[in-house]
Design a protein around this nucleic acid. Structure first.
Length: 149
DNA sequence: GCCAACGTTGGC
DNA sequence: GCCAACGTTGGC
């Protein structure tokens, strides 16, 4: 799950009550569908994008299944979408809880330099999805990289 | 700030 | 349904 640390980073999640926050603002159908497939207890990499050092900053745990993203209902919200209303929501979100912050982030540069991760969706051509699946193998490889630091 | 790559929009 | 124009993402 990608986020811009200037807007909401892992340090912000850590400060939230119960270190939990809802993941609002997803306005892409593919990303939404991936989010709707999530189950409580699932884990996700917490990725920092559009910053000095893009990379995986830690791990979050999915707290609940997807429910309507209420920020889409609010005309004053930057992510307002008049097509989505309470009776027929278009956009969804999950709640995520901090599982753990990496001592050192696994940087995008490092991921790109790791042959076992060359097929990762994150590093594939023109990838712009803010939420994407990670294979079990990729997950393990990332954890191994983190351990090596 | 640049720009490639993509998704979305809207005229026809 | 096509496709050009536009907006957004995100690394660099």
């Amino acid at each position: 799950m990608k986020t811009e640390p200037d807007a909401f980073g892992i340090a912000d999640l850590k400060k939230r009550r119960k270190q939990t926050e809802h993941w609002d603002g997803v306005r892409n159908y593919q990303a939404r569908n991936f989010m709707r497939a999530m189950q409580p207890g699932d884990q996700a990499f917490f990725y920092h994008s559009s910053c000095a050092e893009p990379g995986i900053a830690g791990i979050a745990e999915i707290v609940c299944v997807a429910y309507p993203d209420f920020t889409a209902f609010d005309p004053k919200d930057p992510h307002y979408d008049p097509r989505s209303f309470a009776a027929k929501p278009v956009w969804y979100m999950v709640d995520v809880k901090l599982a753990r912050e990496f001592k050192l982030p696994v940087t995008l540069a490092r991921i790109k330099a790791t042959p076992a991760l060359k097929n990762m969706r994150l590093v594939q051509r023109g990838n712009r999805l803010s939420i994407m699946p990670v294979t079990a193998k990729e997950w393990q490889t990332i954890l191994k990289l983190e351990k090596e630091d």
